Computed example of a mutant assay.
Amino acid sequence: MELHLKIIGISLMILGCIHIIFPKYFDWKKELSSLSLINRQVMYIHTFFIALIVFLMGWLCFTEARELITTSLGKKVAAGLGIFWVVRLIFQFFGYSSELWKGKAFETIVHIIFSIFWTYISLVFLWIGFQ
């Protein structure tokens, strides 16, 4: 299980860093131009904090895998993270419209990969948290 947490840790740190390209990749300068200043800034700031917390979750998994598995507090943290990622998995299917990926090769591949990834993360955390 420790190896799984290390893999998850590295993956989440990479995912956190990938958020850096979101504004340019999704052309937020153009796409968000019609929003009020507060709404534009909320998008940027919330994305930053999502990236930060995803990175820090990864760092925790990578550096403290043994503690997450063996301590009471670690198991509670893992249970909470498991619940978090299950909710994220649910949103993968019911929060985003399938119009965003259906019939589009790259987007469909990304949807499938992240669905598998969220499932993997959820199962590992829940297994640790509730064993």
Rank of each mutant, 00 (worst) to 15 (best):
V87E: 02
V86D: 04
I18A: 13
G74N: 04
A105I: 08
H19W: 02
I21L: 12
S97N: 14
W127E: 07
Y44H: 11
I14T: 14
W59M: 07
I83C: 04
A78W: 08
W85Q: 09
I21D: 08
Y25I: 08
W101Q: 14
V54S: 00
G103Q: 11
V86S: 09
L52N: 10
W118G: 03
I69Q: 12
K102V: 15
E107A: 15
L32R: 01
V124M: 07
W127R: 05
T47N: 10
V124G: 05
T70D: 12
S115D: 09
H46S: 02
L37A: 03
S36Y: 00
F125Y: 11
F49E: 09
L15R: 08
S33V: 00
C61T: 00
V77S: 08
A78E: 04
C17I: 10
V42Y: 02
S72K: 07
C17R: 01
M43L: 04
Y96S: 14
G74W: 03
S36L: 01
I18R: 11
H46Y: 03
Y120A: 05
I83R: 02
F94E: 06
E31Y: 03
E64Q: 13
H4G: 02
S115K: 12
G58Q: 07
E64V: 01
G16E: 01
V77P: 09
